[in-house]
Amino acid sequence: MTDTPEIASSLTPLQQARRAAMAICAEATREELETVVAAVGYPGAVAILRRPETGLVLVRGRAGGDGDAFNLGEMTLTRCVVRLDDGVEGYAWTPGRDGARTRAAAIIDALVQSPTHASDLDAAMTPVRQRLADDLAVAESRTAATRVNFFTMVRGED
């Protein structure tokens, strides 16, 4: 069991690319992911090695944020494994219970690893990346408006 995710620099460039795509898939909608898959237009057959299956992952926290690990609760997760014609296998673990979304994420993971499709995929993912960045920017600016700026009353005694 890993207690901290590896830092990105310790991963291979391909692993880094897969993790980055997985992070987007985890936050994107089913429609967005299916649009990405359609835009890449993989010409071959996609075999389903493991059909989407929903289960749970235990979410752990740390006592005090920095102490011993403890089990906070679980979250729903769906996993799926696919294989492209050229033998590349794509894996997905996406939050929630949506099998179709997870299947699309698994195809995307395979495409990330496919030398002939990786750049098309990157282009197809751009709108999703942008949408997520825009949403984050909106959320951050709304939060920023509620930041407290304290000022101290200066009393007239020197």
Binding site: T4, L56, V57, L58, R62, E74, R79, W93, E140
Partner: peptide, 23 residues
């Protein structure tokens, strides 16, 4: 409902210091 599902494993402990703050 939770009792009917398989458990795939446990997460790494979450890093609350890296939270995207809303409050």
């Amino acid at each position: 409902w939770r009792n009917t599902l398989p458990r795939f494993g446990a997460s790494a402990p979450v890093d609350t210091a890296a939270m995207r703050i809303r409050r």
